[in-house]
Simulated scan of single mutants.
Amino acid sequence: MRIRPIARDDIEGLQALSQQAGVGFTSLPDNREFLAGKIEAAARAFEERTPVDDRLYFFVLEDETTGELAGCSAIVGQVGREVPFYHYRLGTLAHSSVQLDLHRTIDTLFLSSDHTGDAEVCSLFLRPEYRGEANKHLRSGALLSKARWLFIAQFRDRFPAKVLAEMRGVFDEHNRSPFWDSLGKHFFPMDFDEADRLTGLGQKSFIGELMPKFPIYTTFMSEEARACIGQVHRHTRPALEMLKKEGLRWEGYIDIFDGGPTVEAYIDDVRAVRTSRVHPVEISKDAPVQSVSRWMAASTAMNAFRAAWIGRGPGEDGTLVLSEEEARRLEVSAGDTLRLLDTQETS
């Protein structure tokens, strides 16, 4: 298994991933024309042919045994520069009556664009057959998630100070969002799927046009909907846990459609960014291999970026010895460099 930039001929594989992702996965809609545009935008970003603040870095997890795409993940250089980037910010209003000696605090939701200009890690999806503790690909999700931090660390000057990640919200057994049913559907003359589809396609102007500009009192929402605020979909919990281990935290911002949390951090405080290091490479056919390794490595080239698990850490002199198979997978030669992450330091 290895991570690589998406290629222009990956359209069939990416559309297959989008069809498996399903409802609520806003950044990966099942729309071939849109996905082809996303691939082209990513290709131009890796070729550094677009402005830094308008770059989408899109990665795929490739199963080398089958050639299939097992998953995907992405980084948006800066959000909200071209299309408004909305959240609800959870706040509190205090009310009191001195005469009656009554005091009450009420949770509120404010429409916000506070994250404009931040980077975003997004579009993390792993096919179901590559999930689960009993699966030999148990660590594929970790590779998909953490490889992005190695990329950001290697090309730190291409990114702003802060990074965020939007987490998919709660859906019931009928694939309905209680948060949407209690709030969104009263302002948008469409169902959740259509609103989600339009947002995924980048058509977000209707949000600012139709949503109220004044605070929304959560007490007017159903109890079930209030319970969804800041909570994640059951399939999103592993991804959230990985982000929390890297240091991202929920600061009170939620998705306007499903109420899922947005977690955030200063990039320089993210553990994998802080602790990864660059090492020179040597190649040996006798390199020892551990059955389960804690080491993740990524190449230091932009357009030829590769990331994978490797079988050992650096030697005392700082040199990283790769097996011939590892060198082939990462597409490096003796004398090249790799950015190395000890995942035990970020677990």
Rank of each mutant, 00 (worst) to 15 (best):
E166Q: 09
K285M: 15
A41H: 14
S222W: 05
L243H: 15
P238W: 11
G67P: 09
H233C: 07
N135I: 05
L338Y: 03
Y130D: 06
Q78V: 10
P212H: 00
A43R: 15
E120H: 03
D157F: 01
E324A: 06
A165E: 03
V289T: 06
A195F: 11
G24R: 09
D286E: 15
T199W: 13
P212A: 04
A239E: 11
L124A: 13
P215M: 04
A227C: 02
A142W: 03
H137W: 04
K204E: 01
L341M: 08
L61S: 15
H95P: 11
V321R: 06
G230K: 10
K185H: 08
A42F: 05
A165D: 00
E68G: 05
D258V: 07
E133I: 07
T300G: 10
S299L: 13
E133K: 14
A16M: 10
V98D: 11
A287K: 13
R234K: 14
M190N: 03
Q344R: 12
L61K: 04
T65P: 06
T66V: 15
S182L: 05
P5M: 05
E129N: 06
M221Q: 10
R168E: 00
W149Y: 14
A74E: 06
A21E: 02
R8V: 14
G77Q: 09
E209A: 07
T108R: 06
V170Q: 02
E345H: 07
E331F: 01
L340D: 07
V273A: 06
A239L: 06
R271P: 07
V76G: 03
G335M: 09
E345K: 09
S293W: 08
K213G: 06
R148F: 11
S333Q: 05
E47L: 10
N135S: 10
S27V: 14
R4E: 00
F25C: 06
P51K: 11
E194R: 07
H235I: 08
V232T: 12
G311C: 12
F85Q: 00
G24T: 10
R2M: 04
T26F: 08
S205P: 00
D63R: 14
S113Y: 03
T199R: 03
G252C: 15
R226A: 06
D268F: 14
N135L: 02
P314S: 05
H233M: 13
L126T: 12
R4P: 01
T26P: 01
S284Y: 14
P178M: 01
G13T: 10
E64L: 12
L17Y: 03
A94T: 12
G335E: 11
A307F: 05
L340H: 03
Q20C: 01
V321W: 02
G169R: 01
R148Q: 13
G169I: 04
T105V: 09
S291K: 14
R49A: 15
G117E: 04
V98Y: 11
E224G: 01
V292T: 15
R271G: 15
E209M: 11
A161F: 01
A21K: 08
G335Y: 05
A272I: 15
R237P: 02
R306D: 04
M296I: 14
